[in-house]
Design a protein around this nucleic acid. Sequence first.
DNA 1: AATTCTCACAACCGCCGGTAT
DNA 2: CATACCGGCGGTTGTGAGAAT
Length: 251
Amino acid sequence: MYKQEENEIRKGPWTVEEDRLLIHYIALHGEGRWNSLAKAAGLKRSGKSCRLRWVNYLRPDLKRGNITPQEERLIIDLQSRWGNRWSRIARRLPGRTDNEIKNYWRTRIKKKLQDRNLFSQHSIYSNWMPNPFLQENNVAEEDWVSQDSIFSNCMPDQYSMLQDSGAEKDYLQESLLLTNTVADFDEEARTEFSIAPSNSNTISDGGNNFEESRDIVENMGMSFQMESFEAMLPELYGFLMDDGPVSLFTG
DNA sequence: AATTCTCACAACCGCCGGTAT
DNA sequence: CATACCGGCGGTTGTGAGAAT
């Protein structure tokens, strides 16, 4: 239980009346100078506490409701790119706070990824386009795209199909089998995909490679063959084989 | 039905960098 | 220049609700 003495700075959950006082005061005088604001508004709270309550809960431009799948994807992308820079990540999600995103990451995403264990190093969630390619081509860090983003942005229908399929095995297999598939693209296609040099059968995604990926899949008792990919996701397979490359850098 | 466990979230804390005194 | 103060940030914790045992 949060302790509180008479005539001291209050702590713990905010009451409706405290919220009302804070909202009312900010409506009249604006936000900022939180310590003096707390006193002037008649709140027995620290300036920090007032700021936190306003920024994370009372601000009128906050988006209520659950994090959408699109927002979750963005959080995963940005977290893998920037680490736990929550306030920076939050700036990319209008109406969401750093606290909310941090909590969401810790309680949902992190556990989800941990549960997938094998999935972590080889998944579409963590595989990034090879840095040397991006650097050579002067692609700004801001524009780096994860494989996850490739699917969600360039092939939304196929992506949602993958999401609907549910099983993590499918995700893993899909990701690794795409590796296999893309290795068969001609040089122009590879360049468009920014995936692998023409003399390589490898995606340099931070040390993982085709052989390693194949071993993992086979150790899981699955076969690492394009045929199974074709059978599992014929539409995506067809899209990749027939419709040619998709540009990754649309911005 | 009672108890324990898990999850989600609000709110706290310490630290740090920038600014005012 | 030194120090005090403030706001912002990331990590952590306390709490309540609902699920599981």
